[in-house]
Design a protein around this nucleic acid. Structure first.
Length: 438
RNA sequence: GUGGGUAUAGCGUAGGUGGUUAACGCGUCAGUUUGUGGCACUGAAGACCGUGGGUUCGAGUCCCACUAUCCACCCCA
């Protein structure tokens, strides 16, 4: 297909047929966050490149090779956000949000951009829902973020998803751990894959995450971060786990979780979905970031956050057959015959709309039968046929497309009220009918 | 960045060993005698068979390249 009729690689259109699902997801997630006190924030799509280099980290894949970076006409280096945490932190600092009552709680639903090779559940522009919390060092903050994410999954009816937890310590204890890790892998260098040899120099933590079976085997017996945590970090981790247990939130400690972004300290976690064939996929993740705000020039407050990929969430929900709210369809379709009736239908449709109904009338000049067909096709709940007879008698027949029952409606200023009344009546009747069948 | 699959109407597909107007289902539109939808039936519109080369008298069908797309690895959401 010609470039003009093809969306760029890795992007996709969200079509009218699927929009109600997306609106439902975003609405539900943001509302859940609100229950925990998180307020939505909306951020620019692009930021100064430097922001991501400084926060996410130069050595990460995200910054190293996946950013959409360009120079604008003012000769600034600009990057489409590959994630939201950095931009949110920047905005919080810039607008003095951290001067407000602590903790500061932010939520968002926005798209992010990464130059990756697209595949199942992975796009170059993808949508994330997430939350950020600033100013709290307490383990309860970590637990609350995890509880929020779990609550979101529960509310949406997602099953077979569990949070896997780890602590990667503070900079102090991580240094001793890095040393121990390097020593361990150094002595087994010959068995590591090429990328891991590279990781050994740059960030030995990532070797633990390697999918190569040989590396995985070596990693199994490698020193565990959890054994190298300092006293404070150990306490913190213990309390996070205790809080989760007390709240009945199931979790698993997974010492191999290291996360791909450099700003994390202490608690890191991933929400892992296991499908019926046993395939695991990460549906969301997050963690605490101790030094990020300060590194960006803000107060020395800690932050903690979580993000989930909406495309992946939607995929999981579809696989699991989760319920979505029914689509909003036309309440009343006004069928007209003849020029005078067409005029009247147009006018009455407007009356209905200003009274809050979802109403439509014919725009195609179709025959009565064709209009009825159309009304049926778009899922109209009721139809009203207008012709010369109705105009003469100043009343028309309201028909329930569900049950076929009809009733008379005056074409005067009681129009909307009469329709409302009838709809309530027949809706109850329809419900009763359904209930009886059950 | 590495490896594999696929590209035929809006969607889903058929088109053995190359041969005149590319087929079917769904969808769309119009009808089935004039004022009532869902079913059924009739008809219509809609594809230069991803793009560009090549082989051949002749290619949707064979070969090459490119592009797009899907899947896996890497990494991540």
């Amino acid at each position: 297909m010609a470039p003009l009729t093809t969306a760029p690689r890795g992007t996709k259109d969200i079509l009218p047929a699927e929009i109600s699902r997306w609106q439902y997801l975003e609405r539900t997630l943001l509302t859940t966050a609100e229950l925990f006190g998180f307020k939505e924030i909306r951020l620019p799509t692009f930021e100064h490149t430097e922001l991501f280099c400084r926060s996410v980290g130069e050595t990460t894949d995200v910054v190293g090779k996946e950013m959409y970076t360009f120079t604008d006409k003012g000769n600034r280096s600009i990057t489409l956000r590959p994630e939201v945490t950095a931009g949110a932190a920047r905005a919080a600092i810039e607008h003095g949000l951290l001067g407000d009552a602590l903790p500061v709680k932010l939520s968002y639903a926005m798209s992010c951009f990464r130059y990756e090779k697209p595949q199942s559940g992975r796009f170059r522009e993808f949508n994330q829902f997430g939350v950020e919390l600033y100013g709290a060092t307490s383990p309860a903050a970590d637990a609350e973020i995890i509880a929020l994410a779990q609550e979101a999954y529960n509310t949406l009816g997602v099953r077979d998803i569990i949070v896997e937890l780890n602590s990667i310590g503070c900079p102090a204890c991580r240094e001793t751990y890095h040393k121990a890790l390097r020593e361990y892998f150094e002595s087994r260098k010959e068995q590591l894959c090429d990328t891991c040899l590279d990781r050994l120099v740059k960030n030995p933590l990532r070797i633990l995450d390697c999918k190569n079976p040989d590396c995985g085997k070596i990693a199994e017996t490698a020193p565990k971060m959890l054994e190298y945590l300092c006293g404070d970090c150990t306490d913190h981790f213990t309390q996070v786990k205790a809080l989760l247990s007390q709240s009945g939130i199931a979790y698993m400690v997974n010492p191999t979780i290291v996360r791909g972004l450099d700003y994390y300290t202490r608690t890191v976690f991933e929400f892992v979905y296991t499908d019926k064939d046993g395939n695991r996929s990460v549906c969301g993740g997050g963690g605490r970031y101790g030094g990020l705000l300060k590194a960006l020039g803000g107060q020395d407050y800690e932050g903690i956050g979580f993000a989930m990929g909406l495309e992946r969430l939607l995929k999981v929900m579809t696989e699991q057959g989760c319920d979505f709210p029914p689509e909003n369809t036309c309440d009343v379709y006004l069928v007209s015959m003849g020029a005078a009736a067409e005029l009247k239908a147009f006018q009455l449709a407007n009356v209905l709309r200003s009274d809050g109904f979802f109403a439509q009338s014919d725009l195609m000049g179709r025959s009565l039968k064709a209009q009825m067909k159309y009304a049926n096709k778009i899922g109209a709940k009721y139809t009203i046929v207008l012709g010369d007879n109705e105009l003469a008698e100043n009343k028309a027949t309201l028909k329930s497309m569900n049950s076929g029952t009809t009733s008379s409606i005056p074409l005067d200023d009681k129009f909307s009220d009469a329709i409302y009344e009838e709809i309530m009546k027949t809706a109850y009747a329809d419900l009763a009918e359904v209930a009886e069948k059950l």
